[in-house]
Design a protein around this nucleic acid. Sequence first.
DNA 1: TTGGCGTGTAAGAAAAAGCTGACACGTGAA
DNA 2: TTCACGTGTCAGCTTTTTCTTACACGCCAA
Lengths: 132, 132
Amino acid sequence: MSAVETLTGDDLLKVLAALGNPHRMRIVEALCEGRNYVSRLAREIGMSRPLLHMHLQRLESAGLVVGTLELSDSGKAMKFFEVVPFAYELTPEVIAHAAGTLSGADEADPAAPAKEADQAARAKEEEGARTQ
Amino acid sequence: MSAVETLTGDDLLKVLAALGNPHRMRIVEALCEGRNYVSRLAREIGMSRPLLHMHLQRLESAGLVVGTLELSDSGKAMKFFEVVPFAYELTPEVIAHAAGTLSGADEADPAAPAKEADQAARAKEEEGARTQ
DNA sequence: TTGGCGTGTAAGAAAAAGCTGACACGTGAA
DNA sequence: TTCACGTGTCAGCTTTTTCTTACACGCCAA
């Protein structure tokens, strides 16, 4: 079902960043009702074509939509977009696993390897704190 | 299972925007190993405290983590954070439904109401386009 | 040839997000 | 008193994202 296992942290990051935008959510909504080409889609959702173009690129690079350049009978080249039937599960564990495979910078996580020792030190340091 | 039904579009947007950031993903990862207070967490993941504070606020306002101000035996007030066991399902349909309940601005979607007529016009306009 | 409609992209303004450094406050221990 | 360590927040800079305007190209029909 969920293809999360095969997703790298960077890929999931792309997906979340792409979906975390009202305009792009609306674009996905519009494309859910059927494939469409960008000029018409721009008119329907009331957005400038260059702006829609950018958002579609972001969605496509995240693997959430796909675009195919087609040729209509009237000879006009038109780019049709449609949604990819994705299905991601979002839980703390999935996020944690993805974060571990992030390529961004230092890659340091000195807390994870030390298990028992870390837990012991943590328990000691909390010294019976109670909710205020 | 998934509490998506009860989520408004704005709420889901908050969640996705909060999770779509490498730093915040790492914070969730770190908190998955156990609750922690901000100064120590800042040291462990190598981040300035004010910055971590901001990211934690973003995560908490999205409902992904919760923070409780506690009082240690030594009298120091410390704010402990822990992850909320969330579980969201991410599919085009969920996104589409959420987009429909977005509060942002115009709220216009003239394509959705017209069903048959729209589909007919759409089919007509596509006039047998084939992949290039 | 001109006009309409489709494509793409580049330049620069505007807005939002990210990040740092400094400040203020409180407590317990040396 | 002074120091270490916890809390919170604000001003301002840097960086990224978002958005508009403008241009270039292709094809068909009038």
